[in-house]
């Protein structure tokens, strides 16, 4: 790949943005450059990244899912409620994680039915189900804050892979989740690039009719996509509960802005068909950086949301501009072809 192409890639722009922002923040407050802060950024990115990977797959398929935060907290909260109700107290976190994933997949399947079977536009379908899921959770499962979550989940919050005490400053803790999250990230990338399901997702985002004529089942692909988002959101939800050490059914609501912004900034086309896991990882890091550290620049919390909203719009605008530039280049290049 030549240098010019590399420069034009979305990932390159993101890396530049991340470095630039780090330099600015670091110049103003040197404590930014600490291992502890780096590990904190990671920690706050785990859940975001899992959600984002789910959203990435939906966006590539040409759809959108706005129900994932509700699916996440529904799954995490319900798993905790179930465990407390039946007094399950396992020694490790595999049971709650499995429970949450199963619940997430079931909710995702309901989205699949709305979208694949009834053909409801994805935004409307998931907007509708997110209202329904939230209502069901608050009415039938519970609406109260649970602070004494099962011991295994609570303990997992402080399961550190590494603890490094620098000569001065705060203790840097790298959470053990880094390993599974990296593995899942790689697996999602492999799924998108090395399986027929993954290629079908790209195909679907490129054009429904052409995909159907290739012999790919639209309904089956869509159904799998929304069940996948459901499952990964369930996982993200229970990990969120564990890391927070409390289960609050009102949490995560509204976090779709951050996640969708991260995925779109990562280069996934909102029209479908394009997007990479690497771009999404960078997008999530950028958003985490803004959320966690803009405050060091003296930017207040309420402005962070505006900043992320603005970034989302900038990301989409850049996509639109690139698209029209490409279209223009194509015309000129066909003229050249004949001329030459």
């Amino acid at each position: 790949m030549d240098f010019k192409k590399l420069l034009r890639r979305n990932e390159t722009a993101l890396i530049i943005a991340i470095v630039l922002l780090s330099v600015i923040i670091g110049a103003k407050s040197p404590e930014f450059y600490s291992l502890a802060n780096l590990f904190d950024i990671f920690r706050s990115s785990f859940v975001q990244l899992l959600f984002a990977l789910g959203v990435l797959v939906v966006i590539i398929s040409g759809g959108i899912d706005v129900s994932f935060p509700v699916v996440g907290i529904f799954s995490g909260y319900s798993a905790v409620v179930l465990m407390k109700h039946f007094d399950w107290n396992p020694g490790n976190v595999s049971l709650p994680i499995a429970l949450a994933i199963v619940i997430g997949v079931i909710l995702g399947a309901l989205n699949s039915i709305a979208i694949a079977s009834f053909g409801i536009p994805t935004l409307i379908a998931t907007l509708g189900t997110s209202g329904i899921f939230r209502g069901i959770m608050l009415t039938f499962i519970g609406s109260s804050f649970i602070s004494d979550i099962p011991a295994a989940l609570d303990k997992f919050a402080t399961a550190d892979l590494l603890k490094i005490q620098p000569a001065e400053g705060t203790l840097a803790r790298l959470h053990v989740l880094i390993i599974p999250v990296v593995i899942i990230t790689i697996l999602v990338s492999l799924m998108l690039n090395r399986t027929m399901f993954g290629r079908s997702v790209y195909a679907l985002g490129g054009g429904v009719e052409a995909t159907r004529r290739l012999g790919i089942s639209i309904k089956r692909t869509q159904a799998k996509v929304y069940m996948f988002v459901g499952g990964i959101s369930g996982l993200a939800g229970i990990l969120y509960v564990s890391l927070q050490r409390k289960a609050n059914p009102y949490d995560l609501y509204g976090s779709e802005l951050d996640i969708i912004a991260a995925v779109v900034l990562g280069g996934a086309s909102i029209m479908g068909g394009y997007g990479t896991v690497f771009g999404t990882v960078l997008g999530v890091l950028l958003i985490s950086l803004i959320k966690g550290n803009l405050i060091l620049l003296g930017v207040s919390g309420s402005w962070q949301r505006a900043a992320i909203g603005a970034l989302l719009l900038i990301g989409i605008t850049v996509q639109a501009i690139n698209e029209s530039k490409k279209a223009k280049n194509r015309r000129v290049s066909t003229s050249d072809e004949v001329a030459g």
């Binding site: 027929m196 290629r199 790209y202 195909a203 985002g205 490129g206 054009g207 009719e209 052409a210 995909t211 004529r213 290739l214 012999g215 790919i216 068909g273 394009y274």
Partner: peptide, 21 residues
Amino acid sequence: DFSLLPNLSVAENIAIPTYIS
């Protein structure tokens, strides 16, 4: 309209049906 997918490569557009069959 040739039913090609604009976002995939030439190679993928040709080869995908083979995988499916």
